[in-house]
């Protein structure tokens, strides 16, 4: 991740830079799904590959599912691999975007 474009879609670009990495998505229903990020769209809908539910003993609902689509509106948290995230760059980009939005 060298540069993030900021055209009002900073986090969309940010998630695109994480494609192929393993993430854990926590839903607003407390369900945690671990998988490889396959793609993300403008609504921050997420597609995951090779998924597993973190507490699959308790929630066996998705045991025969390997690839899934998660609606952006039900995502509470996304746990990221810290080695893949340049926090300084992300913070700077967020500031720049906030400044640009203020100008408009």
């Amino acid at each position: 991740m060298s540069r993030i474009s900021h055209n009002g879609q900073l986090f969309f670009s940010f998630f695109k830079s994480l494609v192929g990495k393993e993430i854990i998505v926590e839903l607003k229903s407390d369900l945690c799904i671990k998988g490889t990020l396959h793609s993300v769209d403008q609504y921050l809908n997420i597609k995951l590959k090779d998924i597993s539910v973190v507490d699959s003993e308790k929630f066996p609902h998705m045991i025969s599912v390997q690839n899934c689509f998660i609606r952006g509106s039900v995502v509470r948290y996304v746990q990221l691999p810290s080695a893949e995230v340049d926090i300084q760059l992300l913070q700077d980009s967020a500031r720049v975007e906030a400044r640009e939005l203020k100008k408009k």
Partner: peptide, 27 residues
């Protein structure tokens, strides 16, 4: 909330008569 592609082969191998799980919480 979630749409998953079901693997039919995997699904057929699951014995639902013995499978237990908690209901999911609402969003």
């Amino acid at each position: 909330a979630v749409v998953g592609l079901l693997d039919l082969d995997l699904d057929k191998r699951i014995d639902f008569s013995t499978l237990k799980g908690e209901p999911l919480k609402p969003v």
